[in-house]
Amino acid sequence: MTGAAPEPVLVARGLRKNYGAVQVLAGVDLTVARGEVACLIGPSGGGKSTLLRCLNFLERPSGGTISIFGEMLCQDDGAGVHIAPERILRRARSRMPMVFQHFNLFSHRTVLQNVMEGPVTVLGLDRDAAIERARSLLRDVGMADREDHYPDQISGGQKQRVAIARALAMAPSVILFDEPTSALDPQLVKGILGVINDLAQQGITMLIVTHEMKFARDVADRVHFCDGGRIVESGCPDDIFQRPRSARLADFVRSIHE
């Protein structure tokens, strides 16, 4: 007897995004299941980061549907796209926080304050409980001894660890990562990928835009190849990197090996 399929957490169908006459997303279909680590790979300009920003409603989709745990956030009836009220979007964002490539920490707040801000202001958590949660998460990402530092007093790799702790503080259903290592020096990349790998081992659902192909091969449950504003091919890492079906993915895999 086989077990039940994992519950879908995040589902997009026919997702489109236009900037004027330029179409950046051309009908994306994507499902992320509970506990899954999904990586989005592909050439620059293929729409990966725009896809994440639309899923989080930092950008307004031009068409298609988005739902989280079955709650519809964006619907397209053919005559236009209908976005859920802002209170519903705020709740959805709190369930799927994003970790940005350039950290986006509050410069005027300490490390501890950055991590506890969301639980206090968005989730309504008691201040003492938020401090306890923040300190626990900072220990988990190796930043406990920097809680009183400000962002300009810590390194890029340390800022990214704080950004990950901040996302975890929201007790998320899924974490979106937008190229979390691209702004880091090469010697700092390994540490951040190690933190994300630890999260994967804990069963935290993640959707990760990455150019780190070895990381995608080693950590992802499912890899989605994006090109031309579409997901061209999806599969387990072995299928994507060793048995590509499309000529475009085969060319991409060949280029990264070269």
Rank of each mutant, 00 (worst) to 15 (best):
T110S: 14
L138D: 11
G45E: 07
I131G: 02
R53W: 00
V24E: 05
T31L: 12
G47M: 03
P97E: 10
R87I: 14
Q75R: 09
V37Q: 08
Q187G: 04
K214W: 11
G191A: 15
G124Q: 07
V81A: 05
L249D: 02
S62K: 01
V162Q: 07
T121E: 15
V32S: 00
E7P: 00
V22L: 14
N104Y: 08
I41C: 06
R93V: 12
A167I: 08
Y19C: 00
A92C: 12
D218W: 06
V195H: 11
P244V: 06
E59D: 15
F252S: 03
R53N: 05
L137H: 06
A12K: 03
G203C: 05
F177C: 04
P186H: 04
L89N: 09
G45I: 05
V223E: 10
S155Q: 09
P8K: 03
F103N: 02
G3E: 12
S44K: 06
N197S: 15
G124Y: 05
Q187E: 15
V174G: 06
L168S: 06
G228T: 04
V122I: 15
D178A: 01
S255T: 15
G157D: 11
L52E: 01
F225Y: 14
P180G: 07
I164W: 10
T31F: 05
G63Q: 01
S94F: 06
G228F: 01
V189C: 14
I231D: 08
F252R: 01
V32W: 01
S107W: 10
E59V: 10
N18L: 13
L89P: 05
V122M: 09
S62M: 01
K17C: 08
C226V: 15
A171V: 04
V209G: 02
R109V: 09
G142N: 04
D227V: 07
G70V: 03
E179C: 05
D148R: 09
G63W: 03
Q153R: 15
R166W: 08
